[in-house]
């Protein structure tokens, strides 16, 4: 084939490249894929590892403080559902995920799904056929927290991304996903 067609612009590749340069690291292809896919990493982890499982570290309803209200574009003190989970395969942690969900934007069915603790937020969206726009708001490298140091049994830095799922033009889920930089280096 002769060279023809249009070169596609991908601002995410550039953001990843800038992050690598800024932090002095080189990410594996799989790490880059996990950073750049739209929506939760669960599908890829499921396909690569067989069904992965979810361990809920914490979930509860709380009133949004200022920083969270800004993240979700809601009023301070509005009720939100907070969930913090680890996706794991046979006890081996693969990815940490923290989600904020404005309860006023959830149907009763979705609230029930969240409370019964069986499905990941991404799986709930699929299962309930919720149509969304997904936007990555941040990718970064962060120092690992004591909680995740303990869970992942490493002090390696974390690769982090944050994204929003929007439905009816409003943010219905804000998620932060993180995994140690020493993970997913095999491809």
């Amino acid at each position: 084939m002769k060279q023809k067609g249009t070169i596609l612009q991908n601002e995410l590749r550039e953001r990843i490249h800038n992050m690598e340069a800024g932090e002095g690291v080189t990410l594996s292809k799989l790490q880059k894929i996990l950073l750049s896919i739209q929506g939760p990493v669960t599908t890829i982890l499921d396909v690569l590892h067989g069904n992965v499982n979810m361990f809920i570290i914490d979930q509860h309803v709380e009133n949004a403080e200022k920083s969270v209200a800004e993240l979700l574009d809601i009023e301070i003190d509005d009720e939100i559902f907070y969930r913090e989970v680890i996706l794991h395969k046979n006890g081996r942690p693969l990815c940490y995920s923290q989600s904020y969900i404005p309860l006023s934007r959830c149907s009763d069915e979705v609230t029930e799904d969240l409370l019964n603790k069986r499905l990941t937020t991404g799986n709930i969206m699929d299962y309930r056929h919720i149509e969304t726009v997904r936007e990555i708001s941040n990718i970064d490298i962060e120092k690992i927290t004591p909680l995740l140091q303990d869970l992942f049994k490493t002090d390696a830095d974390l690769i982090v991304r944050e994204y929003n799922m929007k439905h009816k033009k409003k943010i219905v889920v804000h998620t932060k996903e993180a995994f140690p930089i020493s993970y997913f280096t095999e491809m």
Binding site: T6, L8, N10, I16, K29, I33, S36, T43, I44
Partner: peptide, 27 residues
Amino acid sequence: NTQKILLTTDGSITAILDVLYGKISLF
């Protein structure tokens, strides 16, 4: 793994190809 990801992703494969190969083109 790459074949499996390309066949099962619920997102766009363009971003995945882009990450794997650098700038890709569409014709």
